[in-house]
Amino acid sequence: MSPVPITTEPVKTFKINGQDVSARETESILQAARAHNIDIPTLCHLEGLSSTGACRLCMVEIKGSNKLFPACVTRVQEGIEVMTHSERLVKYRRMLMELIFSERNHVCAVCVVNGHCELQSTAQKLGMDHVRYPYLNPQLEVDASHERYAVDHNRCILCTRCVRVCDEIETAHTWDVMGRGIGSKVITDFNQPWGESETCTRCGKCVNVCPTGALFEKGKSVAEMAKQRQFLPYLVSRREAMIE
């Protein structure tokens, strides 16, 4: 017996990069693309968490519109023709990566996730061999007050995966964002030291969904920290099964 539940949900057929694809109508273009092994880069998106459309790397073109659409939050539609790798999109993605690198103090060589970092691998995949914008080099702190984990804001890209996993999966809502614009920062509770947080359950989900070395386990040295994400699809499917 197939474990896949039979769905009565309508299916949409459309094209991605000229290839015929189909998807359930509630799926996003990103989900449809990935189901057909078409790679669209993402940093803020993580399957199992809500989508926010913040990193803008997954922007795609839809024929007939001058606008770009974030694939992670754009639903599939019948008959649309999606382009994921036009010259313009490739250029924009590279620029977005450059902006992310220029924002804080990313030094891969001394980073705890060197070799296991989504920011690093995405940069490589997109062919970003240097950053044209001046580095902003803000002075940011490291909070190592937690007994098991630490947060290094120098490496944070504000993807808010930690905020979402803590709120949506662990339902502790320890993490949130404070400040505005370039001064934004993820915080624990009311911007208290993480170690003094009353809501943190020490589950470590935030650490493992973090795409960079911003959140890491204490005691890990350069390149030693690889993130474990298996828990997320497992918890999400368990939860869905319970709801059904």
Partner: peptide, 15 residues
């Protein structure tokens, strides 16, 4: 006044 959510506005305006 950028809210800081998306990369192009947050970092792009600063650059």
């Amino acid at each position: 006044e950028s809210c800081g959510k998306c990369v192009p506005c947050r970092v792009g305006t600063a650059q």
